[in-house]
Write a protein that binds this DNA or RNA. Structure first.
Lengths: 223, 223
DNA sequence: AAAGAAGTTTAAGTTGACTTAAACTTTTGT
DNA sequence: ACAAAAGTTTAAGTCAACTTAAACTTCTTT
């Protein structure tokens, strides 16, 4: 479609705008892409020239409608590939991110639509991220809270986990934390934020690294 | 794995060496990649520096063992993707080449092996090209002849067709020429080489463009 | 309010993959 | 066998995406 670097910038900017308002700062992008801030500056200037972003020096960048469309499409491609790799080709959820990261740039829209169809037009990827439809529609948002904010004694369904660290995902798989799983908060340590949770029959300790990367929904009591 | 351009050169050189001995000439590569001969010269020099090829000015290029390995792997990736797209995802055989052309650079060896397994470790792609195994083994070669060399009155199985022109493949599909189909040579016109062939019940005229791009096996008479 | 830290931009340079133009080598046809 | 044609290389330049180093702006803190 376009080139890899452009697609990655627009995807990343789109993902930022999913979570927070305002302008995205170069420093953030330079960490994500592992390049110097100077390279980001350079690139943002080019993206602005082609009207993919609105960019003001020292202020940051923001997608235009044109750029947003492409960024959203890249997010769709990425999440559909992740789900296809996991669900159809049975790859563990900790490896699909990296593979999808390349495949998303190498697929036609027709291929993505075909995978989408094969998957039954799913709403969420293996880490719980929403998948926009071909027409750009997102599924209705699910209001979830971060595990670290949860109340001791209550039960929750795991709804989303952050997907950028493979070894973290491996750990979660090993202790039985998947999307949809029911957990109960047993305790929280005040000094380091680590939480003890019950999954089915066994108990596990999740450190603050994890508790701020796991998102859950409160279970509606049905008694 | 490496970069796209390098991978494409090594793949192309490998495909050449599948068919003919000797050194590959820059002019040929420049037509394939749609770049100027100067660009090819430049690239060959770089490939030789990294010991992927043996290259002598005005003589041409030849893969080293190191380059051969990569080229063969790219051929494997390409053909497995073509077959997966055609057989599993039901894409018509005239579009799979283009899609595979990009996917082959974006897949890990693990993904390719997984697709291979899903397909049951096949020996040929949708156009009849042999697929090397993960260990580099090719299926036993099938001795086939080009349709233009066939004898009027005899019957043949279609074994391979050249895959680079999508509209040619569309045409073949439309008239019922697939890999494995039985055809009978009815006649050949001496002045332009066009041949009339019988497919099942109907007859079709194949011009010389096609007769030199369709490869067949003689049917062993079993009376 | 001013200084230092944190972050950003500019300037100059590099690299890979291209281009055009000109010089060169090899092949082909008579 | 030799001239013209065909193909190849070299030289110089471009462009995207990077780098480092230096200059600059903004944020934070006292």
């Amino acid at each position: 479609m376009f080139n890899k670097v452009t697609e990655n910038y627009l995807k990343c900017l789109f993902e930022c705008q999913e979570n927070q308002e305002g302008y995205i700062k170069p420093f953030y992008l330079s960490r994500i892409f592992q390049v110097t801030p100077a390279a980001v500056s350079d690139m943002l200037k080019r993206l602005a020239e082609d009207a993919y972003i609105e960019y003001q020096p020292y202020k940051g960048a923001k997608l235009t409608e044109k750029g947003k469309k492409i960024g959203q499409n890249m997010v769709r491609r990425h999440r559909i590939w992740e789900l296809y790799l996991h669900q159809v080709l049975k790859f563990p959820w900790d490896v699909v991110h990296e593979e999808a990261e390349r495949l998303e740039h190498a697929s036609s829209d027709q291929l993505i639509d075909r995978l989408d169809q094969e998957l039954g037009f799913p709403n969420f990827d293996p880490h719980g991220e929403p998948i926009p439809s071909r027409s750009g529609q997102f599924p209705p948002p699910i209001k979830s809270v971060v595990l670290s904010d949860c109340v001791v004694g209550k039960s929750y369904h795991v709804h989303r986990v952050e997907d950028h660290d493979a070894s973290f995902l491996q750990y979660l798989e090993q202790i039985g934390v998947f999307i949809g799983v029911l957990i109960e908060v047993i305790s929280r340590r005040s000094f380091d934020g680590a939480m003890s949770i019950k999954i089915n029959t066994h108990q596990e300790i999740i450190t603050s690294f994890g508790t701020c990367r796991i998102f859950v929904q409160e279970v509606k009591d049905e008694t």
